[in-house]
């Protein structure tokens, strides 16, 4: 089966920001595989490194930040699924060729990323002309098709960004990201500033990319309810590392990591019995000095002596189901901490 190779394999990704006070280890050893034609969710509290990870994959990290180590093997060529590009190693020009064409991005607050003094159509034309120069008619046809896909009329191309509502601008950004039908789209909190009705329309548009266009999406959101509604598989991040990874059903039906359990229980649901929600006590740690051992142990209700001394390994519970916690490691002495 040719599709067996994942579209994107990230291994040991570390993204650090240097400062006079030391190194901020914002992303600190992430391993993730993203399969073809799935929506992969990245969830976690603010500061857990989920946006930085996406920026790292796109090579948008600016000094003083840098990719300390890691590989991101990207296999966007359907005719040759074995051929891979290591996104971390590509130079500026090679990366420029890949962006938009094979790998596109819907940034956080993307409605503010449109150029205010250019008509929508002209901004979209720029993207097409850079990568696949073609005749006027062909370009217009592509733009009209992309706008239609996100439920917007072609006539909207003649407008300026300030003439659109927030949800329409967000959908323009999705249309732009899909213009050249890239293999992978990364959406960073695309619905955070939107009303629920608009949020639903945008989420349905993203699901449509997967179902009708065959796209693969990495979807970043702090809102677990949105993940439950949209994604196929997901990773829960905390303090720069992945704490738990599995299908959306595994994560919600049967969370394993104490952090995941807490996170799910801290969010109110609509309808049903009204139980008092539990918050996660304590503060999120600083990326300048993550806690020793397991990074969650100071806030963890199930912490054992080993958790404060030994860094937990990632344990594969089942195929593709991973958890980074000592409680699931058969080889560790929880009272002592020596593996």
């Amino acid at each position: 089966m040719t599709d067996a190779r994942p579209l994107l394999t990230i291994e040991d990704m570390r993204i650090h920001y240097d400062s006079v006070r030391g190194s901020y280890k914002v992303v600190d050893g992430v391993d993730i595989e993203v399969h073809r034609n799935e929506i992969f969710g990245l969830a976690g509290e603010s500061g857990c490194g989920k946006s930085t990870l996406v920026e790292g994959i796109l090579r948008l990290i600016e000094p003083p930040g840098h990719i300390r180590s890691g590989t991101a093997l990207f296999r966007p060529f359907p005719e040759d699924p074995e051929r891979s590009l290591d996104l971390v190693q590509l130079d500026y020009h090679a990366m420029r060729e890949i962006r938009w064409k094979h790998l596109s991005y819907i940034p956080q607050g993307s409605m503010n990323s449109l150029n205010p003094v250019m008509r929508i159509r002209d901004q979209m034309t720029d993207v097409v002309m850079h990568h696949e120069p073609g005749g006027q008619d062909e370009v217009s046809r592509n733009i009209a098709a992309a706008l239609e896909m996100v439920g917007l009329p072609e006539s909207l191309g003649a407008l300026y960004p300030h003439e659109l509502s927030g949800g329409m601008k967000q959908r323009v950004c999705i249309a732009m990201a899909m213009l050249l039908q890239p293999a992978l789209v990364m959406a960073d909190e695309p619905t955070t500033a939107l009303d629920v009705n608009v949020q639903r329309a945008v989420l349905e548009t993203i699901a449509h990319l997967r179902d009708q266009m065959g796209a693969t999406v990495i979807f970043v959101s702090h809102d677990l309810a949105v993940h439950a509604e949209l994604v196929d598989r997901m990773a829960i991040m905390y303090a720069g590392v992945v704490m738990e990874l599995g299908t959306v059903y595994e994560i919600f039906d049967n969370p394993q990591h104490p952090y995941t359990k807490r996170l799910i229980h801290s969010i109110p649901a609509l309808g049903g019995p009204r139980e008092r929600l539990e918050s996660i006590p304590g503060m999120a740690p600083s990326p300048l000095a993550w806690p020793e051992g397991c990074r969650f142990h100071p806030r963890c209700p199930d912490a054992m002596p080993a958790c404060s001394t030994t860094t937990p390994r990632t344990i594969e519970l089942d195929t593709g189901r991973k958890v980074t916690c000592h409680l699931f490691d058969p080889d560790i002495d929880l009272e002592q901490g020596s593996a």
């Binding site: 629920v196 449509h208 509604e229 609509l270």
Partner: peptide
């Protein structure tokens, strides 16, 4: 409005597109 709230349960997703 109520119909647009994400369900919080992957087994009960929105059914048809609106």
């Amino acid at each position: 409005l109520i119909d647009s709230v994400p369900s919080h349960n992957p087994h009960h997703r929105w059914q048809e597109e609106r």
